[in-house]
Simulated scan of single mutants.
Amino acid sequence: MEDEVLIRLHLAEELRDSGYNVIEAATGDEAITLLSSVDDIGLLLTDIRMPGNVDGIALANWTRSQFPSIKIVLISTEIRAGSPVEFDACFTKPVRFVELIQCVRKLLPETEQGHSHGR
């Protein structure tokens, strides 16, 4: 999930161009709805700060408790040590897309086309 629309669109495009299916959500609340209703999501990409009632940390905690097999990648300018949720990977902004794609491939090695949830 990404709170800046243009960055979110670019990330989604890069992931699609790399062969991944991407579902975008505008808020943490929308992401929870999508995660609850869409099968085969393998990865959640989120920022800490997002519009709505659910921030990225709360979304990641919820995702980890409900769907422990989903990989979680955090992208933010506010990465904090001792986060209350365990992420599979963290990136600071600005994101280097090559590094992000390499990370996604490492986290989803079982398929050529993973399912990525980006906002």
Rank of each mutant, 00 (worst) to 15 (best):
E2I: 13
E4T: 15
V5H: 15
L6D: 12
L6T: 13
R8Q: 14
H10W: 04
H10P: 00
A12Y: 04
A12S: 15
E14P: 06
D17A: 14
D17E: 14
D17M: 12
D17W: 10
D17S: 14
D17H: 13
S18I: 04
S18G: 06
S18A: 15
G19M: 10
G19F: 09
Y20T: 00
N21W: 12
V22C: 06
V22Q: 00
V22E: 05
V22N: 02
I23A: 10
I23V: 15
E24V: 03
A26G: 12
T27A: 12
T27V: 13
T27W: 09
T27L: 12
A31C: 10
I32R: 13
T33N: 10
L34R: 11
L34T: 00
L35V: 05
L35K: 05
S36E: 11
S36F: 00
S37W: 04
S37H: 01
S37N: 11
I41M: 07
I41D: 03
G42S: 03
L44F: 06
L45G: 00
D47P: 01
I48R: 09
M50S: 05
G52D: 07
G52C: 10
N53M: 13
N53R: 15
N53H: 15
N53Y: 08
V54K: 05
V54H: 01
V54A: 06
D55H: 08
G56D: 11
G56L: 13
G56E: 14
G56V: 11
I57T: 07
I57A: 03
A58E: 14
L59K: 08
R64N: 11
S65L: 11
Q66H: 11
F67W: 09
F67D: 02
P68L: 03
P68F: 07
I70N: 07
I72P: 02
V73E: 01
V73D: 02
V73W: 08
V73C: 08
V73K: 00
L74I: 10
S76I: 09
R80T: 13
R80W: 09
A81H: 01
A81T: 06
A81P: 07
G82P: 06
V85S: 04
V85Y: 09
V85H: 05
E86F: 10
F87Y: 14
F87G: 04
D88L: 08
C90A: 14
C90P: 01
F91E: 03
F91H: 06
F91I: 02
T92C: 04
T92P: 03
V95M: 01
V95A: 01
F97P: 05
V98L: 03
E99G: 01
L100S: 03
I101K: 07
I101D: 00
I101R: 01
Q102S: 04
V104N: 03
V104G: 00
V104M: 07
R105G: 12
K106Y: 03
L107I: 05
L108E: 10
L108T: 13
L108M: 13
P109D: 10
P109Q: 11
E110R: 14
T111N: 11
T111G: 08
E112N: 12
E112Q: 14
Q113N: 12
S116F: 11
H117P: 03
G118Q: 06
R119K: 10
R119C: 10
